[in-house]
Design a binder for these strands. Sequence first.
DNA 1: TGTATATATGAACAATTATTCATATAGTTA
DNA 2: TAACTATATGAATAATTGTTCATATATACA
Lengths: 97, 97
Amino acid sequence: MQLIDEDKIIDISELFKIFGDSTRVKIINALIDSELCVCEIASKINVSQSAVSHQLRILKASKLVKYKKNGNCIYYSLADEHVEKIFKLGCEHINEL
Amino acid sequence: MQLIDEDKIIDISELFKIFGDSTRVKIINALIDSELCVCEIASKINVSQSAVSHQLRILKASKLVKYKKNGNCIYYSLADEHVEKIFKLGCEHINEL
DNA sequence: TGTATATATGAACAATTATTCATATAGTTA
DNA sequence: TAACTATATGAATAATTGTTCATATATACA
């Protein structure tokens, strides 16, 4: 007997799909320590501003990051503790292989 | 200061990529309850035998499932408690959105 | 107002990937 | 051995997706 219906399964796979790209994971990893603006993220993870912006859009749409304006910079941070939890569980698994 | 190097980030994203497909998540969900052979999985989640077999190959290669032979059936089960943990954390996140 | 900086976005392209279909392999049983 | 069942796999196809490049938008500051 399955407790989880098909729609939810798709939502879950969509969630993990977001974590399934190295640029996005780099962004998430960078934001664990502190909130950062777009160009700080780009330089920290060594990815073009455009690519970071495209990926932030996806992270934003999935509500995995939040942001606030400050001057003409936009500071991004992780949306909630779930994001870090999922990321860290992934780390753990990798470390134990 | 990042604690996690680039190689590991890629490994982590590769791991989540595996969870980022609904057929694979359906298989994982089906295997939480009990071990199942290929055709049982296929009929339980309503996906063709070939598609299930292709995805099991990927899950096997990532060491997320293990298997044993019994007669001419091959029974698959989740490799370790991490797999279920990651899946359930994904569920939790979805349920709280 | 004009210039510089920060961010977002559309289009194009390349690469990856999941499914289907056909078929191969292997074990079981009559 | 022959027929049947279970599983795996290669090739082809369609769809998705990440990056780049060019450019748009918006804010700050001189």
